[in-house]
Every structure is written in structure tokens, then in C-alpha cells.
Amino acid sequence: MVLGLNGRAAWRTAYASVIGTAHLKSGAPCQDAGRCTVILAADGSEILVAAASDGAGSAARSEIGADLAVEAFIAEFGAVARDDPTLSRIDRGFVTGWIARFQEALAARASAEGCAPSDFACTLLGAVVTASDAVYLQIGDGAIIVGTEEPDRYAWIAWPQHGEYANVTNFVTEAHAAEVAEFEKGPAIDELALFTDGIERLVLDSASRSVHAPAFLPVFAWLRTTNPGCAVAPSEALTAYLGSAHVNARTDDDKTLVMATRRSAAPHGAQDGSGA
């Protein structure tokens, strides 16, 4: 086990976005974005900042919106967390302010490019985890899941925001985004995943409203065997998984998975799958 300076194990991370088969057919780009980063707080402890976004299929520049939303979350939430790893400065008011600033920046860009802010429509999933604390933000569908004290069980932070119909959700670009935003604070966790709605049906059981743990267990088991440190490029292994026939048989949508763990591999399984 590799220890961070604060005594906690170091984060291992992986992320990938893969275009949906329907987008390939129609020539549309991948409109998902997602990544994570690990930054160091003033006391040397690690801070994980992760975000994912799903650009609306009906919006002309939503892949740009998704990218901007992910970068804006990581930059601003990361900066505040670095100064105060207890995350006391990240509250509802901060979230509302961040959404307003992001929407202003989009409005300026839209006006410069001669399009509407809604052309950048996208969802947002974001998480910040320090040595002691965690915050989560969700606007729209997809979800964030975290490890629990039971090693084989995962819990969701907020259920995907769908309207009555499967193809209706909320976007960070909409006027009511701050009202519908799910914002949660909690103690630090040591394993989490953010994913867009492309893989919702694979990993969430909507009848029991629970996380389908078997979908995550092998992927986390693999992640725990990778080299510690922050991924700086999309993971080849996750890209292969998200583009596999197993996944594509269940969705034709874009799909993004951002994962992080600071659990160590089980002693007996430590060598399994480490080649990925």
C-alpha cells in the first residue's frame, strides 16, 4: 500500500468517455466529458476532484458545454478545496454562485459565437474528496456512487434526475439549475465512481433503487491493482470496457465512467488483471 503524507492510501484513478453506437451511425460526436485529478492541499494531503458531464443530444455544441462544465468544476472546486480541505467553504451558496458564474461564462461565449447558451446544454456530476470530507454535486441524470463500510456494497449519492420520461432531464445551463441541483456533504470515502446516463441501466437497479454492485466489483478490483497516482489520460482498459459488445448491447448512447479508489488490492487477488 502506498501511503499519502496524511497516512491515507494514495488515490488510484481512471476515466474514459466512449461514443455511443447511435452517434457513430448518425455522425454525431461524443457529447460526454469526464475526468478527475488529484491535487495536494497545503498540509500535503491528497484531494480528489472528479467531474463528468453529458451534453444534450438536441443541443448543437453540447460536447463543448460538457467539456467546459467538467473543467470549470475541477478548477473552481479544486482551488477552494486546496485552501480549506475541511471543505467548510463549499456550501449551497458556493454551489449557486458557481452555477451562476458558469452560466455567465457560457452566455458570453454564446454571444461571441452567435449561438444560444442552451446550445451548450449539459448535465453535471462532480465530487471532491479530501482526507476528512467529501462534497457531491449533481444536476441531471447519471449518478455518483461511493463505497460503503461493507466491501461489496455501493451507495448512490443522488438518484438520476429524470422527468416522467426517460429522455427528459435537467441541465446545468438551465435557469432553474441551482434549484434542482443535488448538493451533499459527508465524511471522506475511499472509493467512488461517476457515470453518465449511458450506463445507468447497467449499473443501477431501478426497481429496487439500488446500485448493482456486481457491475462495479470487477472494475474496482482491477483499479486497485493499477499504479497509484492520478490518471492524466483516458484509461485504455476503461475505454475498452465501455466500448465492448456487452455494454453496447444495452445502450447506444455515449457513456462516461470516472473512477477512483484508495483501497488496496486484496492480498490474494493482487496480481489479477494488473496488465490492463
Binding site: D54, G57, S58, N167, V168, T169
Partner: peptide, 11 residues
């Protein structure tokens, strides 16, 4: 087209 539509999309 509807079956393939994505969140928020007006088909």
C-alpha cells in the same frame, strides 16, 4: 428516433 433519443431531446 424516439427510442434512440437522449435526455432532454425534442425529437
Amino acid at each position: 428516433g424516439v427510442a434512440r433519443s437522449r435526455p432532454g431531446e425534442t425529437v
